[in-house]
Simulated assay, not measured.
Amino acid sequence: MEIRSGKLTDVVGITDIFNFYIENTNARFEEIPFTVKNRQEWFSQFSNDAKHQLYVATENEVLLGFACSQQYRAISAFDDTVEVTVYLAKGAKGKGLGSKLYTQLFSSISTYGVHRLLSGVALPNDASVALHKRFGFKEVGVFNEYAKKHGQYISSLWLEKALNVESAL
């Protein structure tokens, strides 16, 4: 298994993973699957030498998951804050890949002036909440029934973590 920076050629596999969550879970709020073209545009925000990065886990050239740090809000007040997320392919859960991806991501972005990491987890998702807490994220609060998908209201737990070199390792 390899953890490496994401490449444009990974977008097809990333799109497949996103679409699994869109079509089968409430982890993504979209109701219409993404297109590869849409995800190629999304991919353009990432760079290996900036605070917005994307890492993938592969095995035998099969994409098993990804983690990324993205802009939280498009105003300068939030320049030192990133939103992080991790997604795994259906058969890749429970193997420690989420931890490996986050370890690489947090270590890599720690030198780019990131002060705060945020993550929102659609509930229920005990595995994702546990993963974030293992990395030192603290619960900030719950947005109760603030989203609706397929006629069902969804709540999300929001978590935060201060990022510095010591906490990234």
Rank of each mutant, 00 (worst) to 15 (best):
M1L: 13
E2A: 10
R4W: 07
R4Y: 06
S5G: 14
G6L: 05
K7F: 10
K7W: 07
L8D: 00
V11D: 08
G13N: 01
I14M: 15
T15K: 10
D16M: 10
I17P: 00
F20E: 03
F20A: 00
I22Q: 06
I22A: 08
E23L: 15
N24G: 09
T25V: 09
N26M: 13
F29H: 05
E31W: 12
P33K: 02
P33E: 01
P33N: 07
P33I: 04
F34I: 00
F34R: 12
K37C: 10
K37T: 11
R39H: 05
R39G: 04
R39E: 15
Q40C: 04
E41D: 08
W42M: 05
S44E: 12
F46N: 11
S47H: 14
N48H: 02
D49T: 11
A50L: 04
K51A: 15
K51N: 14
K51Y: 08
H52L: 00
Q53Y: 06
Q53D: 02
V56F: 11
A57G: 13
A57M: 04
A57P: 10
N60V: 06
E61R: 14
V62S: 14
V62I: 15
A67R: 02
A67G: 00
Q71C: 12
Q71S: 04
A77D: 00
A77M: 09
F78V: 01
F78A: 05
D79R: 15
T81G: 10
E83G: 09
V84M: 03
V84E: 02
T85Y: 02
V86T: 12
Y87K: 09
Y87Q: 11
L88E: 10
K90P: 01
G91C: 01
K95P: 05
G96R: 09
G96I: 07
G96Y: 08
L97I: 15
G98W: 08
G98M: 10
T103W: 02
Q104M: 14
F106K: 02
T111P: 06
T111S: 15
T111E: 05
T111D: 07
Y112E: 03
Y112A: 05
G113P: 06
G113L: 06
G113D: 07
V114S: 04
H115W: 07
R116T: 15
R116Q: 14
R116G: 00
R116A: 05
R116Y: 11
S119C: 15
V121A: 08
A122N: 05
L123I: 09
P124E: 03
N125E: 05
N125V: 02
D126W: 08
A127C: 04
A127I: 06
S128C: 02
V129Y: 07
A130M: 07
L131V: 05
L131I: 10
L131C: 12
H132Q: 06
R134E: 05
R134K: 15
F135S: 01
F135R: 00
G136S: 04
F137Y: 11
K138S: 11
K138N: 13
V142P: 07
F143P: 00
N144P: 12
Y146I: 13
Y146G: 13
Y146T: 14
A147D: 01
A147V: 03
A147I: 01
K148Y: 02
G151V: 00
Y153V: 08
S155A: 02
L157M: 15
L159P: 11
L159Y: 11
E160N: 14
K161Q: 09
K161F: 01
K161R: 15
N164A: 03
A168W: 02
A168N: 04
A168C: 09
L169M: 13
L169Q: 14
L169F: 09
